[in-house]
């Protein structure tokens, strides 16, 4: 975010008091005012955000158990990372999650569209879709653990409607557990996406749409060329949010729902990072995982944005 040039800003108290009243000392003090106002926030950010971000990179080159001093071991962690099956597996799971990005965008977009078009009961739906957003991942994880239990309500429902053959151990079957986790996360974050798309849709320029209609554009053409085109920045924003979410927000859910299992089938990179660091005490190695994670997030977000931008050019 950058301040727009027309931001109203007072020239600072120095200007306001005027040279007649203030001594040089007072003026200097007044000029320092923003510094004093910012100091506490900047100090905290420097100590617990900026310095750690740099330290993460340093720690990635060390062997550290959390008690003794970190020991410098050069590139060893990164070499291990390349031949680490578990890391590869976790990363693969994350990439599978990223592959469903289009669904993760399309579902909230379509829902927001329905709400925007005032589907009967839209106020209630808007309220309902947003509900999971305020719930903790622990609540979600534990709830779905019970709901999807082999003897839980979901299998009960399937049996009741004659689909008992589909009933299974949803969170404990390789090949099914990961898709289940992905569906839960999409469900959980749906509300934010709907909210963002809905407020963007209501800010759209209605005249463009009307003009297109007058020009005889079909509904699909309007959707694609007029609305989607205007929505593009918001869709990009949501795509970046999801990329970050998909790499860093699965941990609490997986911790309470599947603990990475069955086997390692639902472990994601952030879960593996936690496990290596705080269960196995390999904090240096886990830092290398963190560095790899940030690099992957950066490239994937860049790619997602580039793809969305490319699509805009195609439309033109």
């Amino acid at each position: 975010m950058t301040a727009s040039p027309d931001t109203p800003s007072v020239g600072g108290p120095a200007q306001v008091r005027g040279p007649a009243r203030g001594t040089r000392l007072r003026r200097a003090a007044a000029r320092a005012t923003p510094l004093f106002l910012l100091a506490p926030a900047l100090a905290l950010l420097a100590w617990l955000m900026v310095f750690p971000a740099a330290d993460a990179v340093r720690l990635a080159f060390t062997d550290w158990d959390g008690f003794s001093d970190p020991k410098w071991i050069g590139l060893d962690n990164f070499k291990d990372l390349l031949s680490d099956d578990r890391f590869t597996q976790a990363l693969t799971h994350n990439l599978i999650i990223i592959a469903v990005l289009p669904i993760w965008i399309a579902v909230p977009y379509s829902l927001a569209w329905g709400l925007h078009r005032k589907i009967p009961g839209w106020r209630f739906f808007r309220f309902a879709f947003f509900l999971p957003v305020v719930l903790s991942p622990v609540v979600i994880g534990v709830y779905y653990g019970m709901f999807l239990d082999p003897n839980g309500p979901f299998n009960g429902l399937l049996r009741a409607i004659g689909l008992g053959g589909l009933a299974r151990e949803w969170t404990n079957e390789p090949g099914i557990a990961l898709p289940v986790v992905i569906v839960i996360v999409i469900w959980w974050t749906l509300g934010i996406g709907v909210l963002i798309f809905l407020s963007a849709l209501s800010n759209l320029d209605g005249e463009l749409e009307d003009a297109a209609r007058v020009d005889g554009a079909s509904r699909w053409q309007i959707q694609r060329h007029v609305i989607f085109w205007q929505m593009r920045p918001v869709i990009q924003f949501w795509a970046i949010i999801i990329v970050i979410l998909s790499f860093t927000s699965f941990f609490p859910l997986i911790y309470t729902l599947t603990e990475g299992g069955p086997g390692f089938a639902t472990a994601t990179v952030d879960f593996y990072l936690y496990q290596e660091a705080f269960d196995n005490g390999n904090l240096g190695y886990a830092s290398a995982v963190a560095v790899a994670l940030v690099v992957v997030i950066g490239s994937v977000s860049g790619l997602a944005v580039a793809l969305l931008r490319g699509r805009r050019k195609a439309i033109r």
């Binding site: 100590w47 617990l48 955000m49 310095f51 750690p52 971000a53 330290d55 993460a56 720690l59 959390g66 970050i244 790499f247 860093t248 927000s249 941990f251 952030d270 990072l273 936690y274 660091a277 904090l283 886990a286 830092s287 963190a290 994670l293 940030v294 997030i297």
Partner: peptide
């Protein structure tokens, strides 16, 4: 992302 800097913050 908070999850990426949990280790250095733990250390700090």
């Amino acid at each position: 992302p908070p999850a990426a800097i949990v280790i250095p913050i733990f250390k700090a």
